[in-house]
Nucleic acid binder design. Structure first.
Lengths: 159, 159
DNA sequence: TTGATTTAGTTGCAAATGAAACTATTATCG
DNA sequence: CGATAATAGTTTCATTTGCAACTAAATCAA
């Protein structure tokens, strides 16, 4: 039981608060690392991450997969293109669209970030047994389904 | 195992990403509820929550307990005082400090918000067995200790 | 006691965010 | 076809945020 009686609430035990605080602490730390070591923001990193998995997707696809909104993708992509990490190839069939991809430099950054990102994740998970890590995974998935049932936040079926 | 090989990373399975997405979804939903039903922000709510538990604490204490920074507390408190939900009594011994507390109206809002907040938390936890909820609690605590060891985010010892 | 340091809290400001408006292009339907 | 609606993506703008600088008061140390 997280709370005592029916009508008491201790902020420290309140799930939305705990999630917010933990997520902020983690985000802050990892953002500092990305910034310091690679000079990219979390949003830029998310875009590199999905482009690393799937070359040639559109900005709208990126937004869907990173759960960023369109303006955020537009801005982060623009600066990645400026820095020569991402390429944009406009679609000849539908000229509203364009395919995004990693440049050679972008692929290099991607390859360099991955192990650091995984290492940080491992640092967090090191506190947990493999069974606990698996349990956490499952718990977060179930919570996400409740918090955002319409949107199916992750564990996307095959694309 | 969350990831496949040593050097692959699927954003959907990446813990910092998952925490961020889940926390944002939860925060968004609960912020909408606070706003719609009580016309308060999450930060105002946090302040009411700690003042409801401990009357007469200072702004610095509030900041420590809500993990908000001082300017955020200052601003949110100012608007709560404007609305007559919070009282400020300046300390006669040390005139830099002042004691914050809930006004009668503030206590009423506090009493009204509590059950709604708990109901939303229950909505989330309803997906989980009591053992799972307990496990989640423990997992989040352990992660917080890793993510922010210096700061001891919650489960504060007795005050 | 008085000058330097620390602490409480507020204000200012620059950057980040998010919603809505906008442009350009394609699709739909009479 | 030609007008209307829908879609991709960008830009604008108001709000929020977080940090640094600031004011006021108290403490410390000579």
């Amino acid at each position: 039981m997280n709370h005592d009686a029916g009508d008491k609430l201790r902020l420290d035990n309140f799930l939305p608060y705990r999630l917010s605080v933990l997520s902020n602490a983690v985000s802050r730390k990892i953002a500092d690392m990305y910034e310091r070591e690679f000079d990219i923001s979390i949003w830029q990193w998310r875009i590199l991450a999905v482009l690393g998995e799937s070359e040639g997707i559109t900005s709208t696809e990126v937004a869907a997969r990173t759960l960023m909104d369109k303006p955020a993708v537009s801005r982060a992509t623009a600066s990645l293109i400026d820095r020569g990490l991402v390429t944009r190839t406009s679609d000849t069939a539908d000229r509203r669209k364009s395919a995004l991809g990693l440049s050679t430099a972008g692929r290099e950054v991607y390859n360099a970030v991955i192990p650091r990102a995984l290492a940080y994740e491992q640092e967090l998970l090191a506190a947990l047994s493999p069974e606990d890590a698996e349990a956490l995974h499952s718990l977060l998935t179930r919570l996400a389904q409740i918090a955002s049932p319409e949107r199916d936040l992750w564990d996307r079926r095959e694309d």
